Amino acid sequence: SHFELRVGTITLHFDNISEELAEELEKLAKNGVHADEIRRWWEEWLK
């Protein structure tokens, strides 16, 4: 499923992401983690 995450002024787009993972990314964003860090985390997870 597709997921969009708003982090400050940036909107990150994720394809084929589980609800659980989407929730984890939302938690990171709410805790003030920068969009670049979240994207890096996601790319690492995909490997």
Score class of each variant (00 low, 15 high):
27 K>V: 09
11 T>M: 06
39 R>K: 13
3 F>M: 03
33 V>K: 13
41 W>M: 13
32 G>Y: 05
11 T>W: 08
25 L>T: 00
12 L>N: 00
12 L>H: 01
17 I>L: 05
7 V>R: 00
5 L>P: 00
13 H>F: 13
40 R>A: 13
8 G>M: 03
41 W>H: 13
4 E>G: 00
23 E>G: 11
32 G>H: 06
10 I>E: 15
38 I>S: 01
11 T>S: 06
3 F>I: 03
32 G>E: 06
7 V>S: 01
31 N>C: 06
21 L>Q: 10
28 L>T: 01
9 T>E: 15
10 I>D: 09
37 E>K: 07
44 E>V: 07
5 L>E: 01
6 R>V: 15
41 W>S: 06
25 L>M: 04
39 R>L: 15
14 F>T: 00
45 W>F: 10
2 H>R: 09
43 E>N: 09
34 H>S: 15
35 A>W: 07
42 W>G: 04
5 L>I: 14
5 L>D: 03
20 E>D: 10
25 L>K: 00
30 K>A: 14
16 N>R: 05
16 N>L: 05
35 A>P: 13
23 E>W: 12
10 I>H: 05
19 E>Q: 14
13 H>M: 10
5 L>N: 01
23 E>N: 13
14 F>W: 04
2 H>I: 09
41 W>F: 14
30 K>N: 13
19 E>K: 14
24 E>R: 12
9 T>Y: 07
2 H>P: 08
32 G>F: 07
33 V>A: 14
30 K>W: 08
13 H>Y: 14
6 R>F: 08
28 L>N: 02
1 S>C: 03
36 D>H: 10
17 I>M: 04
38 I>A: 03
42 W>M: 09
31 N>V: 08
22 A>M: 15
25 L>H: 00
30 K>Y: 10
34 H>F: 09
45 W>T: 07
10 I>Y: 03
9 T>S: 15
32 G>P: 04
46 L>N: 11
31 N>E: 12
46 L>E: 08
41 W>P: 00
42 W>F: 15
40 R>F: 07
36 D>T: 08
20 E>M: 06
31 N>W: 07
15 D>M: 12
33 V>P: 04
11 T>K: 04
41 W>D: 02
39 R>N: 11
11 T>I: 14
26 E>A: 13
8 G>W: 05
22 A>N: 02
18 S>T: 14
12 L>F: 08
42 W>Q: 02
35 A>N: 03
27 K>F: 10
14 F>M: 02
15 D>K: 10
3 F>Y: 08
43 E>W: 09
28 L>F: 05
41 W>R: 14
21 L>V: 14
45 W>L: 08
8 G>L: 03
24 E>G: 04
38 I>E: 01
2 H>M: 07
37 E>N: 09
20 E>R: 08
21 L>Y: 03
31 N>I: 10
44 E>K: 06
26 E>W: 06
47 K>N: 14
31 N>G: 11
27 K>D: 11
2 H>L: 03
14 F>R: 00
43 E>H: 10
32 G>W: 06
7 V>A: 03
18 S>D: 06
8 G>F: 03
26 E>V: 14
32 G>T: 06
4 E>L: 03
40 R>E: 10
42 W>E: 01
22 A>T: 08
3 F>E: 02
